[in-house]
Computed example of a mutant assay.
Amino acid sequence: MLAAVGLAVLVTLLMNLAADFTSFADALRNRRRLGGPERYTSPGPRELQQIVTAVNTQLEDERAALARRAAILSGVSHDLGTPATRLRLRAALIEDAELRAKLEADIDSMTGMIESVLTYTRAEMNSEAPRRLSLSALIDAVIANYADVGRPVTFRAPAQVVVRGGASVFMSRQGQATLAREGEVTVMGRPVALERAMSNLIDNALKYGRRATVALETDARTATIVVEDEGRRPPPRRSRR
């Protein structure tokens, strides 16, 4: 009896030890997707505490290196904005319209790259923590902002899902049911980053097309935001007489 009790206690301790390592490994595995604390604390043996200390040190070094890199990129991108403005003013003085248009297009491309780098550095320096949010409500809010200023952005209702039943000895055909893909879609995400990404896609769709259509496709595990643009009107045909 004493041997059985001792064996049960030993098995319990081993299971608790494995659970501590497993829970810490899961937290690290989901850190990029779900976020995590600045420092980790985990109960457990001395070996696990040493691993947690090493991970915390690595995270501190990574945050410091990221802050330095983001500060350098932000400073360089900000400094490039001044000569870009001077180039635009000087390009306006060029009398050749074709050459002036080409220079202005190059300047627009350069300033767009600068803005994208500034956006990236701001996002890295002010990284928001993931939280539970309504993806449906976020999409509605973004579309409403474009609708308020008269931009042609619409939402495409999701299609219905057909679920097929299993085979049965009492029926020669499989049954099926239709599920309406309506209602609120809740996810874990970063709302500011998601709104910025959707706005960039919609802006590109409006830039290169006549209108933008936003759709939300979901299943049991994933949610996909689809932004489609409608091509420009074809140029009118010229007939010779």
Rank of each mutant, 00 (worst) to 15 (best):
A54M: 13
T85E: 02
S42K: 10
L73F: 02
L93T: 14
T53G: 12
H78G: 15
Y40F: 06
V76P: 12
A91L: 01
P83H: 08
A91R: 02
E60C: 03
Q50D: 15
L59H: 05
E47T: 11
L48T: 01
A67M: 08
T41N: 13
R68H: 15
A92W: 10
I94G: 00
P83D: 04
A70D: 03
N56C: 08
R63W: 01
T41R: 14
V76I: 12
G36S: 01
I72A: 05
N56H: 06
L73T: 04
R46G: 12
Q49F: 07
A54W: 08
P43Q: 12
S77Y: 09
L87N: 07
G81V: 09
E47M: 13
Q50M: 14
G81T: 12
E60A: 00
E62N: 06
L89R: 13
L93W: 10
H78M: 14
R46S: 10
V76A: 15
D61F: 07
L59E: 10
V76F: 13
A67H: 10
A84N: 03
L80Y: 04
T41I: 05
A67L: 04
T82F: 05
S77D: 06
G81Q: 13
P37V: 00
R68I: 09
R39Y: 06
S42F: 05
